[in-house]
């Protein structure tokens, strides 16, 4: 790691400019909106109505088309939030703190969806809504982390300090992510191992797997859309009165 190799690409610094980010995010937004709507509709209709029922669980397995994307996103968003926070800390980028702040509520929502759908599925399949096994407990901890980060971020009124404090908590909290991911392998749990990995062959036929892949991709697009929207609204709030913003076609409607 010589000094000359520590060069960050140009786009990285451009993304740190509120003006540049605002414009770039504005271009991306409609594409993510279309992709999210298309993929989620396609995946949901295929998965919920046309995919074959499971030989043991019958139709109750279909809840995985909501549960699995929500669970995957809850962890990915946490990592994304921590990376954005770290970038904000190291390069002092306001926009990065804004992105991290945008992630909190979205991640908490996906975690809540994963917990609730898991409980609904658990009752008919396992015989219990909740079991204190490693996977479920670590996911509950993830939800509490999101809640703590949200509270910390709201409690400090000075944005830059709030961003720093949030980032540190998010970075420390990422320790929980590998624990969630590998909990089903490291310990005896009631929760089954992953059905959906990028590294191994799917443990279900294509008719069941592909709709899941679509809803996962669609959820990522939905997340991207909402994070860009929320970050843009923060930029508008922090830059209100800036001349570049006043001239922007989104604001003037021209």
């Amino acid at each position: 790691m010589t000094e000359s190799s520590w060069r960050m690409p140009r786009w990285f610094h451009q993304m740190g400019s509120p003006k540049w980010f605002y414009g770039f995010a504005g271009i991306l937004q409609p594409w993510f909106a279309i992709a999210a709507l298309g993929l989620l509709t396609w995946g949901a209709v295929w998965g919920l109505a046309f995919a074959p029922a499971d030989y043991q669980q019958g139709n109750s397995f279909r809840i995985m088309y909501v549960h699995v994307p929500a669970a995957i996103l809850s962890q990915s968003i946490f990592l994304g939030m921590a990376v954005a926070g770290a970038v904000g800390l190291v390069w002092k980028m306001k926009v990065a703190f804004m992105v991290a702040r945008s992630c909190i509520a979205i991640g908490a929502t996906f975690t809540a969806i994963a917990l609730v759908t898991g409980a609904i599925w658990g009752k008919p399949t396992w015989g219990a809504y909740w079991v204190w096994d490693a996977r479920l407990t670590s996911t509950l901890v993830l939800f509490f982390l999101y809640a703590g980060i949200m509270a910390l971020n709201q409690a400090i009124s000075e944005r830059h300090i709030a961003g720093k404090a949030t980032a540190i908590l998010a970075i420390v909290g990422t320790i929980n992510i590998p624990i969630i991911k590998y909990s089903v392998e490291w310990w005896n749990t009631l929760h089954q191992s992953s059905s959906f990995t990028l590294t191994a062959k799917p443990s279900m036929p294509a008719d069941m797997y592909l709709p899941l892949l679509l809803t996962v991709l669609g959820s990522y697009c939905l997340f991207a859309l909402v994070v860009l929207m929320r970050t843009r609204s923060q930029i508008v709030q922090s830059q209100s009165g800036a001349s570049w913003l006043m001239q922007h076609r989104d604001i003037t409607g021209a």
Partner: peptide, 17 residues
Amino acid sequence: DEVLAKHDENYMPPEVI
């Protein structure tokens, strides 16, 4: 006093089985 079923990660349509 309590029995829970553990499900594995495999899913299969009934016709295939």
